[in-house]
Design a protein around this nucleic acid. Structure first.
Lengths: 156, 156
DNA sequence: TATTGTTATACTCTATAACTATA
DNA sequence: TATAGTTATAGAGTATAACAATA
């Protein structure tokens, strides 16, 4: 029988350490050519695929009226396309463009370069152990369920 | 000889997985009773101790004029105290109050409860392996150097 | 009658330029 | 002359309430 309290403490410390020493989310968001809320919408679409405006708003905790200028801005920058759902003409579907996918690929490479730079001073022994423990951690964490509202339309 | 490219890919995937499945930084920031920039100042002070206004501004990428209302607001909420440096009367030192430290302790407990809730469905075997790999990962990551500007006063 | 998304609007957060005080 | 921090101000981001269109 495991002590969940101890494991959650370890996990908490890991999260703190990562944010301080590896990748600060705020710094990462700032590398995107759009404001933070807009970048969050892009991340959401990158992960979830085509989504309605309400679905994005609910899952990201952004107010619906605020979505209009955000999507307008992303449209202007050719990062998303917007089209009406044929079966329910109230709903607008938002989809990332190829340009957006390219942007994500570029950012990923930049982040990886930064990570390489950070870990390059570790000993070979540490690197081997790090790779092993990272893969194990990620594998188990990916089993955790992700809570998300996947309804097409979304009530309050 | 390790392949840094492969390890950085593993690390990148871990960061993505954590943000999606474990703890979203944006959600965590929103639980603080102050705007995001104010919460970032609190985090900075919690980690770095007493700091000057310029030091905080430079390290967090916040403009100096913007620091004035942020510190005023934190003062009003009794989360920081402000006092003049005796050796250089231009400099204001900012320090967290006991109330702020209590707030951090409370938030930590809430996050740990949330983490326990998330991992409680894992098998005993997974939990044992998770704890082991987390501790190993955190130990090695904590060896990475943290870049920070520690000058008292700070130029551009 | 309920839901999707928008408009109108006010409030909050933020950055740039010009300033005062101290070194 | 340079630096710490502030004031003034305009712009960007956000949320609440009321609305039009569709179901």
């Amino acid at each position: 029988m495991n002590d969940l309290n101890i494991i959650s403490e370890s996990l908490y410390q890991l999260l703190i350490t990562i944010n301080r020493q590896v990748l600060n989310p705020h710094e990462m968001m700032k590398t995107f050519p759009v404001p933070p809320s807009h970048a969050r919408v892009l991340f959401y679409l990158h992960h979830s695929g085509v989504s309605s405006i309400s679905e994005i708003a609910t899952n990201l905790g952004i107010s619906k009226p605020n979505m209009t200028p955000i999507i307008d801005n992303l449209l202007k920058r050719d990062l998303v396309v917007r089209y009406t759902d044929t079966s329910d003409r109230r709903i607008l579907r938002i989809k990332l463009t190829d340009k957006a996918y390219e942007l994500f690929a570029q950012k990923k490479e930049l982040i990886k370069e930064m990570l390489i730079n950070k870990i390059s001073n570790l000993s070979d022994e540490d690197l081997t152990e790090l790779d092993d423990s990272i893969v194990k951690t990620a594998k188990i964490i990916s089993k955790l369920k992700e809570e998300k509202d996947t309804k097409k339309g979304v009530s309050k």
